[in-house]
Simulated scan of single mutants.
Amino acid sequence: MANQPRISTQPRLLLNTTGVIFEMADEIMPKLDDKGAQKLDTRDTGLPMWTAPVFGRGRTPGKKWSAQMNITIVSAERPSVQDGDQVHPVDLEALPWVSEQNGKTRSGVAFKASGLEVLSGPSALKAA
């Protein structure tokens, strides 16, 4: 029963991506643990986790921004996207975290999605 996903009691912080453009910044890679094995989403689904490096650009008038970020994709299969694809993260959520290491507290926000929908780019041309 150790491999069974837990039911999360934390509220999901789903993000509104209206007015945001996401573009793949590199290839998707398996998310690995410190021993080199692919991590599994043991908290919710038990599925493999993938790291999707993306450029995000907010295009709401008066609130333009850009950032590079990694989004963890939880999926049985490696998402079929490639560098340069414009994508839409499905069910994108923010996951605040805090850790303590060597007496120092660190915190941040991680991003997680259930998939990536290709909007345009090299992968969309192959599918046509």
Rank of each mutant, 00 (worst) to 15 (best):
T60S: 14
D85A: 10
A76M: 05
I73E: 00
P89E: 09
F22K: 00
T72Y: 00
T51I: 13
E27S: 13
L32T: 13
M49E: 09
G58R: 07
L14M: 04
S8N: 01
G84R: 05
I28C: 13
D85N: 08
L13I: 07
N70T: 10
K63F: 07
L95A: 06
K64L: 12
N16A: 01
E23A: 11
D44V: 14
P61T: 10
N16W: 00
R43G: 10
P48A: 09
G46A: 10
W97C: 11
K35I: 10
E23H: 03
T60M: 14
S80C: 04
A37K: 15
D91S: 08
G46L: 10
I73N: 01
L15D: 02
K35G: 12
G36L: 03
M69V: 08
V98C: 07
E27T: 14
P11D: 01
M49V: 12
T45G: 12
W50I: 08
G62L: 11
I7P: 00
V74G: 04
T42G: 15
A67P: 00
Q82L: 05
M49Q: 12
L32Y: 03
D26L: 04
L95E: 08
G84T: 06
S99L: 13
P96N: 12
I7S: 00
Q86H: 03
Q38W: 07
A25E: 06
W65H: 11
E27I: 09
T72M: 02
K64A: 06
A37V: 15
L47Y: 12
V98A: 09
T60E: 12
V54M: 11
Q38N: 10
D44L: 14
T17Y: 03
S80T: 09
V98P: 05
V81E: 02
V54A: 09
L95N: 11
G19T: 04
E93R: 14
A94Q: 13
K64T: 12
S8G: 03
V90R: 14
P96Y: 11
A94K: 10
S99W: 07
T60P: 03
T72P: 01
P5M: 00
P48S: 13
H88T: 15
K39N: 05
V54C: 12
P11Q: 01
